[in-house]
Each structure stands twice: as structure tokens, then as C-alpha cells.
């Protein structure tokens, strides 16, 4: 028996009752005798990612104070976050000053792909964590901020580590959460990763140029996406052909202006 068991009844209120819980532990576990010498139960009720969320709020305040709109970009590996960012850096008007925090487990390859477009780039290698973190969290993003001159930035992209599970769990302090999905990934992905697909307000459906070569059922994907996130804005794009990216740029400019107005009102 491992050091783990689950209560399957889901009746939370009962679990605050020591008597019930201790009894349940004995029944389920059978190896709890060493723990039964008058243990004291201390109620904590603390959110496990509370510290991350506090730091995320601090990051957001930092962005707000500098009138920076921050966008957390997430996707599975290879969906095209960096390719879309590359086109975006090349295409946004000069009046929009851009910075990128580039999350990468081990290398600087993505950061190198984004160099040369006049954007400030801060690389965040996550390998210093326990064997390489698979996501960015608020403290990591905070550690990258001193390397950026936020006073001269309007739009900050936080390019997360490619992963459809963990990044959805961590608020990094961005104002907007966006994901890139590519049509080579299969129609069922929103159903398999509902937490990620639900956590974003915009989905860029990328690699649309490949549609004639694939058996991909786009209407089915869109139905699956709508079933987990009916409110999401969906833009069909190709980073390769640049098809559809104008609407993405318009969305970016619009959310930037909206945040700018909100910052002025504060």
C-alpha cells in the first residue's frame, strides 16, 4: 500500500470532520496505527498555488504600471507559437513596441529565431528546475522582468513551454491567455485537454495551408472546441502563408488599446 489514497465519495463537508476521516483512514489504509497516538488536526484551507497567484498579481501590477499588455501564449510542442510570433514581430506596426519572454526548457533556439526584429527578448531556460519545468510560472516570469525595459514596451508576449497540460495551471500575470493549435494535432484535442482549451480567450488554428493535404475535419474540431469553450474567439491562420494573421494583429492592437485606456483610467 502506497502512502496515498483517495476518498471517492466526494462529500467535502464530511472530510472536515476528524472523526469521519480518521475512521476512513483506518478502514482504507490498515497501516495507520503509528499515526493514531492522538494526532491533532489543523485546518489550513490554503490554495496550493496561492503563492504563485500572489506573484502573478504582482507581475500584472508591474505590467499595468508600465502600460504593458501581457499575453501568455500556450500550445503543444510544434504547433507554431514561435513561427506565429516571428511573423507577428515582422508585421506589427513600428508604433507597437514588442518584447518577448521566451520559455524554453534547455536551448536558446527559439529566442534566436525571434532575434533581428527589434523586439526585446528575454530567454527563460526552465531546466534549472527539477529536471526542467514543463511550464512557466509567476516567479519565473518575475525573474525575467529585470532584463526588459518595460517602459519602452507596449506588448509583451510570454511564450510558454510547449505543453497542453501544465501551463494551463499557472497564472503568470498576463492579461490575456491565447493558445496556438495546429490542424496536424487531431480534432479531439479540445476534449482531451479541456483545461487548456477552456483557459484561453483566443485560439489561433494554425497550419491552415496544410488543410488540402490532411484528413482533418475542421468543422468537427470547431464543434469540439465550442463544446469546451463556447466563448473563445477562433482565428484560422497559417504562419507559413500568413493567411488570416491580419485578424490576429487587429486583435492584438485592440486589446493593447483597451488595456492602455484602462491604465489611463487608473
Amino acid at each position: 500500500m502506497g502512502r496515498f489514497h483517495r476518498h471517492q465519495d466526494g462529500t467535502d463537508q464530511d472530510h472536515h470532520d476528524d472523526q469521519h476521516c480518521d475512521q476512513g483512514d483506518q478502514d482504507d489504509q490498515g497501516d495507520m496505527s503509528g499515526y493514531q497516538t492522538g494526532p491533532e488536526r489543523v485546518v489550513v484551507l490554503e490554495r496550493i498555488f496561492g503563492e504563485n497567484d500572489r506573484l502573478a498579481a504582482a507581475n500584472r501590477s508591474t505590467f499595468d504600471a508600465a502600460s504593458v499588455t501581457a499575453i501568455n501564449m500556450m500550445s503543444s510542442p510544434g504547433a507554431g507559437k514561435t513561427a506565429i510570433l516571428r511573423q507577428t514581430l515582422a508585421s506589427l506596426p513600428d508604433t507597437t513596441r514588442v518584447a518577448v519572454i521566451e520559455g524554453d526548457i534547455e536551448t536558446s533556439l527559439d529566442a534566436e529565431r525571434l532575434a533581428g526584429f527589434g523586439a526585446q527578448i528575454a530567454l527563460l531556460n526552465t531546466a534549472s528546475g527539477f529536471g526542467g519545468e514543463c511550464h512557466l510560472d509567476a516567479p519565473m516570469v518575475a525573474s525575467a522582468l529585470p532584463r526588459l525595459d518595460l517602459a519602452t514596451v507596449d506588448l509583451l508576449f510570454i511564450e510558454n513551454v510547449g505543453n497542453l497540460v501544465c501551463p494551463a495551471e499557472f497564472d503568470v500575470g498576463a492579461h490575456h491567455r491565447v493558445m496556438v493549435y495546429s490542424i496536424t494535432e487531431g480534432e479531439e484535442k479540445p476534449l482531451k485537454y479541456p483545461v487548456m482549451f477552456r483557459s484561453v480567450e483566443l485560439v489561433l488554428v494554425n497550419k491552415l495551408d496544410l488543410l488540402p493535404h490532411l484528413d482533418f475535419d475542421l468543422p468537427l474540431f470547431l464543434r469540439n472546441l465550442a463544446s469546451v469553450n463556447p466563448a473563445a474567439t477562433v482565428l484560422q491562420v497559417s504562419a507559413r502563408s500568413t493567411e488570416g494573421l491580419d485578424l490576429w494583429y487587429e486583435w492584438l492592437v485592440e486589446v493593447g488599446q483597451r488595456n492602455g485606456r484602462a491604465a489611463m483610467l487608473r
Binding site: 494526532p39 491533532e40 488536526r41 489543523v42 485546518v43 498555488f49
Partner: peptide, 12 residues
């Protein structure tokens, strides 16, 4: 939910 609800402490 993602909450740490309580701790059990050994007798002091």
C-alpha cells in the same frame, strides 16, 4: 479545487 485543507500533527 486545489486546496490544502488540513494537516495532521503528531502529539507534541
Amino acid at each position: 479545487e486545489l486546496v490544502l485543507t488540513s494537516l495532521e500533527l503528531a502529539e507534541a
